[in-house]
Each structure stands twice: as structure tokens, then as C-alpha cells.
Design a protein around this nucleic acid. Structure first.
Lengths: 339, 339
DNA sequence: ACCTCCGGGACTTTTTAAGTCCCATGTAGC
DNA sequence: GCTACATGGGACTTAAAAAGTCCCGGAGGT
């Protein structure tokens, strides 16, 4: 049986936000007391009015006392702050991880879901749900979302739910198919995400492994060119991160390439690029679709990858992809961060 | 350490209400699926619109699926319902107790706080907090609140917090002083409640034990008569329940009275009236202030008493006081109800 | 072919939260 | 003792969220 906390997160995630906010007010007040509304609001980074409402509430609950010199915690208030500390750590320990990861990897936003996808497979679904929520929240009319392939992205597609805000969204694959299991192909995932969310989609029916001439020929095809244009115009990109060795084998790469990758110490893969632990690109398997340069033009690059054994890959790829959003799990997050 | 829920309730008092509502929707949906909005709303006794908001939320959480035949629980949803069942029983066992007590004692409303004030003294404070909350919620401008004495009422006074809604409230003692410890006197409590809540107060400076002539004389005093008028006009009355024997001894009653009470089997006391287990009045120690008849004119009679050893007293007094509000604790509630 | 109940959209009303400005007062520093 | 500043609290406006209400096209069952 899951804990009470897990249930609350599912059934009242909105209330947990206000819980956190109120606790933060209490905690900050505890540190600064006695203090006035305005200085406290500034310290907490909230407007005066909103803090005022919280203060009013906390006063009615008898947790803080208001005096002419400022506000102070009442006895009940300081007791509560002390008692709640471990609970809040449980509830929002991940928030802390998120902040540290964001600064460590220079990302705009990091979301960490509890668990480790190496050990429990529902964790991948949780990451998927998180991605779905983000997509919903940043949705804009007539946007294009490019999605990559892989098991993690498949989980994302599975967790998409219908939403009116995604109705005018077009999902496209980021690159041509990988020539592997069809349910992990970007094409499949793009169409599944569109179906589940109520959006539209366009597919890119080209193989991944192509000779240069074949690629040049294909790319001139009008209907392919059209889709490629669409893909490269995507303002939102969702992709996973692969383990370099596993990806190379899945793509049936030549023994030479495998040896090269191993020699260079490649650990992570994304969009056909293979990365060394220091973020250096050690190989690029060209295909049709998004390139790293295109990512710079996207407003939202959403990276989703988890599992403690992918920690090195994530740490290698993220800096190269640029400071977007990372959705990962607790296992990977703790493995990435220096202790 | 108190339970985690107790702590959360301080920061989010309506947490349980929301949790319960959402759970009920899930549970009912589980029973009726597939079902439409309107029938589900009717079954739950809520309006269509409000259910609609809940449904929207639950769908976003991926707990329910919406199909053309109606709504169904998703796998995650049915898992959650199953997992939550025992938890909800724990959480709302008190709600259940409240309902049963209300019908058993023919009261309008019963609130049961967890614990037993015989065993832990913070339970009395919890009851006090509950009373304070009720007073706040039913507050009207220029109202008069009559309060009795006793240790329980002292706890209520202690837990009152400043509230704008009580600013125009006048607190008065229900009866003249008991001639006992000053901090348990109705006068003291009325003034303390007024001070803590930011309201006003009027006191009744007359002893409790008076000869008939002395009482008749006193009651003609203009300033006393004025307060008595105020007391009898109170639309809200808050009182506790005493153990008959203990009260009689505290009031230094004569050996004859003690014997009489014992012979008649008096168990409970309130407002100077002594009650037998069947609710019969076996003695009335007249004083100046509220009488049982005056209670009928009050809109809200709030009885607050707890502790398993007071169960008999509560059961005896409540019916006589008439169907108001009872605040008690788990210990008393379980002892009162037939098993 | 009809009839009923389904989800969803759209609009209005109501309630609640937030933004903004101002004031009397108490305290600290000079 | 006086000034300057930060304090809580009040009042009013504006914005946003929630709830009430009605209607529509369509799927399923009869």
C-alpha cells in the first residue's frame, strides 16, 4: 500500500501547493520574527496582498501573533513549524532536488518524480504524466510539438489525456524512424500522443539509416520537405536520452562505430548525436529532421529520462541540448548530483 | 507527535472536506460506472456544475476515463479507490460517530474531536478550538454570547483567536459566579473570550449561592437587571456539563443535598440543574441568569463536554438542553453510543 | 425511427482573490 | 523630545475563478 502522502498528491495536488506556501510563510516568519508584512513579502518573493491573505488566515488559526513591532509566531505556530519540518521534507524533498539539479545542469526547470525507473516501471509513467501536464500548461494555439522515440517517450504518449488546450496542436516526429520496434518509433509516438490528447499529427515516413545521396534525394520530395519544414518550425520539442551503447546496438551500427564510441567514452545519445561525459559530441548519425542547431530556435525543449543507470547519460546530454526543461526521477537525480 | 493529518489540518482546515468530496465522487463512480454527469450528481446530492469541476480535475489526474457511454474509473482510479478505503475509514470514522450521536441524542449537530480528555489534556484544547471555529462561523453583528464556567469552557476561552467577525459580539456570563476558583468562573471566561477574540463583554457580579430574599433584592438593582436582560437575550449559549457529585462538592453543598442527589442518582449538571440518567431534573440550584426556559429562545445552544467518564452526564443533560450543538471527544462519544 | 441520456460548449451570475493606495500609530534613532 | 520610518489595518477597485443554467449534437438502446 502506498503512503497517505502519495494519495494526497494524487487527489489534492492543488492543496499541497497552498500547504507549501503557508508553511513557507510560517518558516520564513520563524526566521525573521518579528517582521512586518512588506519585508516578509519581499523575502518570500510574493506580493504584499497575497501574503496578507495568508497572514490573515494564519492569525485566525492562532498560529501567529500580530503586535505593533511586527508579526511573531505563537507557541502553537513554532510548535507546528518544528513538527512539520520532516513532513515537508517528505512532501517537498523533490522540490529541493529539482532546484539543485536545475542549477547544476544549468536548466530552466527540472521536475523530479519519486522513485527510480530502473526498479519500478510505474515511475516511467509518472514521468509521462509530468510531461503531459507540462505540455498542457504551455500549450498555445496552432503550435507544433516534435517528439522523439524510445521507451520513455512511449510512456509519455500513454499518459497523455484529452485536453481542450491541445486541440489545435500538431504532433510530429523529430526525426525519421529508427528502424526498430514500431511502438518505440517517433512516428508511432507522435500519432499516439495526438490521438490521446485530441490533437493532430503529421508523420515523417523515412528510414533513419540512409546514405547521403538517398537523404539528399528524399529531402527534395515535396511532401517530405513539407513535413520537415513543419518539424523544424516546432517551438516545442520532447525527447528522451538513450544509453550510447544500447542505442548504437539497437540501430545495428557497424562494429567500427561501436568501437569508436567505446573508445571515445560515449555515454548518452539524443537525436542521433552521441555524447561523451563532458558533453562533447563524439559522433552524429545524420538523418532527416531536427538537428541540434534547430533546438536553439525552440521555445521549449523538454528532456525526459530517468533511472539511476542513465544518470551519466543525462548529465552528458543536458548541457549540450541547452537550458530547457528536464523531467527525471529521483533515482537519476540523486545519482547525478554530487553528494 | 500528533498525526500528520492533524498538522495539515491546521494549515488547511478544509483539506479533509475536499479529500472526502473527491473520494466520494470516485467511490460512487466506481459503483455506478459507466454513468453520466447528471445521474452521478444526483446520486451524490451535488449540483451538476460542481460535480463537473471535480470530474474535470479527476480526469486531468488520469483517475477517470470519459467515454461516450459515460465515465469510468481508469486503472489508476480503481486502484486508488481500493487503497484509500481503509484510510478513509480512519479519517472519517469520527464523521460517522458524529452522525450516529446526532440521531441518538436528537441534536442538530455533533462534532467529535479525536482523543479522550480523560487521558490527554490537549483534547480539551481541541474541543475548545472546535467551539471557537463554530462561534466564528455563526457570528452575526451585535450578537450576545452567554458562556458558562468550568474547566472545559476555560479551554474554549484559551483557544479563541482574534476574528473580525466577532468584533461586535458581546460575551456575558450565563449565570452568577460559582464561588469557586476564579479562573473557572463564567465571569472570567466571558471576559477572556472577549479579550482573545477582540469582542466586548459585560459581567454579572453576583454570587451563585444566595438566599431567595437576597436574590430578589439584587435582581432589582438597575445595573444588574440590565446585564440580566442582556444575558437572557443571548441568541448563542455556550456551556459545559459537570459531573453531578463533583459539582455539588465544588459548590460546597449541604450534606443533605449531596445525599439527595446520590439517592436520586443525579449524574450530570448544567446551569445549576442536576439531571438523572433519564434526563429528569432532580434538583435546581437557583441563581441569577439563564434558566432552562431561556435556552428555548436561543438560536444556538452549544454544549461542550468530553471524556469517557462524562459520558453518562452528557447523555443525561443533552436531551434536556434541547437539540443544539454538541462538541465532544472520541472517548465520550464511543462511551455514549450503544455498541 | 425514435427517445433518452451522454459529454461538451457557452453564457451569466456570484463569489473570492488579488492589486493598489492610504492612514494612524508605535518604535527606534538621533 | 522629535523626526523618520516601518508597522498593521482599512477601503476600494480590478481581475479571476467558481458555480448556475441552458442548450446542442450524437451515440445506444428500444
Amino acid at each position: 500500500m502506498k503512503t497517505m502522502i502519495e494519495m494526497q498528491k494524487k487527489l489534492l495536488p492543488d492543496l499541497l501547493d497552498v500547504l507549501k506556501q503557508r508553511y513557507e510563510v510560517l518558516r520564513q516568519l520563524h526566521l525573521m520574527q518579528p517582521v512586518g508584512r512588506r519585508s516578509l513579502a519581499a523575502a518570500l518573493g510574493m506580493t504584499e496582498r497575497i501574503l496578507r491573505s495568508e497572514v490573515e488566515f494564519l492569525r485566525e488559526q492562532g498560529l501567529i501573533r500580530i503586535e505593533t513591532v511586527g508579526m511573531k509566531l505563537s507557541d502553537a505556530g513554532s510548535d507546528l513549524v518544528a513538527e512539520m519540518e520532516p513532513l515537508m521534507k517528505d512532501l517537498f524533498g523533490l522540490t529541493d532536488l529539482e532546484k539543485r539539479l536545475a542549477t547544476h545542469l544549468h536548466l530552466k526547470r527540472v521536475i523530479v518524480v519519486p522513485g527510480d525507473s530502473d526498479q519500478s516501471d510505474w515511475v516511467k509513467k509518472e514521468m509521462g504524466r509530468a510531461v503531459a501536464r507540462i505540455l498542457k500548461s504551455i500549450a498555445q494555439p496552432d503550435q507544433v510539438v516534435a517528439v522523439a522515440g524510445g521507451t520513455t517517450l512511449a510512456a509519455v504518449a500513454e499518459m497523455m489525456t484529452a485536453s481542450s488546450s491541445l486541440k489545435e496542436t500538431t504532433f510530429v516526429p523529430a526525426r525519421g524512424g529508427l528502424g526498430e520496434a514500431v511502438e518505440l518509433e517517433a512516428n508511432t509516438i507522435a500519432s499516439q500522443m495526438a490521438t490521446k490528447s485530441g490533437g493532430k499529427y503529421q508523420l515523417l515516413h523515412v528510414p533513419d539509416q540512409l546514405s547521403d545521396e538517398a537523404r539528399e534525394t528524399l529531402i527534395k520530395e515535396p511532401h517530405i520537405q513539407e513535413v520537415v519544414e513543419l518539424v523544424r518550425s516546432a517551438r516545442i520539442v520532447v525527447h528522451g536520452i538513450g544509453d550510447a551503447k544500447a542505442m548504437a546496438e539497437r540501430r545495428k551500427s557497424s562494429p567500427q562505430l561501436l568501437a569508436h564510441l567505446q573508445q571515445e567514452g560515449a555515454v548518452g545519445e539524443a537525436f542521433g548525436y552521441y555524447f561523451a561525459p563532458d558533453g562533447r559530441i563524439v559522433y552524429y548519425g545524420r538523418s532527416i529532421g531536427l538537428t541540434l542547431e534547430d533546438l536553439a530556435g525552440a521555445d521549449n525543449v523538454i528532456t525526459v529520462a530517468g533511472g539511476s543507470d542513465k544518470a551519466a547519460s543525462i548529465a552528458a546530454v543536458c548541457p549540450a541540448v541547452g537550458g530547457g526543461t528536464l523531467i527525471t526521477d529521483e533515482g537519476a537525480a540523486r545519482a547525478i548530483l554530487p553528494m
